[in-house]
């Protein structure tokens, strides 16, 4: 075999400027502009050390999200549109079978009449039922806590859709073409929010979070729950937050404030 030595991918040139720029943003962002008002824009809550391309996701990290329901407006759908654009989820005008990775749910308390609105997507559980029930192990949790479907081994049995308490998963009901190169998806397999894993691996925030801070209410905060210095970890330590169906003991990585 005349195969040349497998060149380690670290040898590949990579724009160091871009990484350090992001690291810089991470260090400076999250500054309190005024008491109670935080600036969390691009890369705000990311750890300063971004992962190299050839480095596997680490279990020292647990990606999570904190959503402030008070800042989420019922009429705003920016996170959903951003997700659709980013992942190429344009439907076929058939709402019962079209996919929704993230959706807005409007809540009303029947006893008090209080109304709220919030986005719900895959909650990236620590103990995901979808992973437990998947016969082939296609549904899996990555080391950094992101729950994904390995579409190479998914046989389309839909048991995970039945098992998910959050109705977070969709089945691809029809033939697709021209998918996004970073978000492969195809007929006959199950899919759900990937937490924009392609963006995370590229040191960027999920599309919904970015859209929420750009044009929405700035209700979504993304970051590493395991890093005590991260903005999200500080906030969940400081303020009350809750998980949907916490009674099930699944420990989702998506938390809500003021719910």
């Amino acid at each position: 075999m005349n195969r040349k030595a497998d060149k380690p991918a670290t040898a590949m040139p990579f724009d160091p400027g871009r990484r350090s720029f992001l690291a810089g943003t991470a260090a400076t962002a999250g500054v309190a502009l005024a008491p109670g008002i935080f600036l969390y824009s691009v890369g705000a809550s990311r750890s300063a050390e971004a992962r190299a391309l050839d480095e596997a996701a680490s279990s020292e990290v647990r990606w999570g999200m904190l959503i402030d329901v008070n800042r989420c407006d019922s009429g705003c759908n920016d996170c959903v549109s951003a997700c659709v654009t980013e992942n190429g989820l344009q439907g076929h005008g058939r709402p019962a079978t079209d996919p929704q990775w993230i959706r807005k749910i409007d809540l009303r308390d029947p006893n008090t009449g209080r109304e709220q609105s919030l986005p719900v997507m895959c909650q990236h559980c620590d103990e995901p039922p979808c992973v437990d029930v998947c016969p082939t192990g296609a549904s899996f949790k990555r080391a950094d806590g992101i729950v994904l479907v390995n579409k190479h081994t998914c046989i389309g049995c839909r048991y995970c859709i039945s098992a998910c308490p959050y109705k977070a998963r969709s089945f691809v009901h029809e033939t697709l073409e021209d998918q996004k190169s970073y978000a492969p998806r195809g007929k006959g397999t199950v899919e759900s929010c990937t937490l924009c894993v392609h963006r995370i691996d590229d040191d960027r925030q999920p599309a919904c979070v970015e859209a929420c801070s750009d044009t929405g209410g700035g209700a979504m905060l993304f970051g590493d729950l395991n890093n005590p210095d991260s903005e999200i970890a500080r906030r969940v330590a400081q303020y009350a937050s809750q998980q949907i169906r916490a009674d099930l003991g699944l420990n989702p990585a998506v938390r809500y404030r003021n719910l």
Partner: peptide, 21 residues
């Protein structure tokens, strides 16, 4: 199944926490 052509996957890769498997 969504992908009956992958029956061989179902027969060769198992997740033993799954009652389906």
């Amino acid at each position: 199944l969504g992908r009956p052509d992958r029956l061989i996957v179902a027969m060769t890769t198992y997740n033993f926490t799954s009652i389906f498997a």
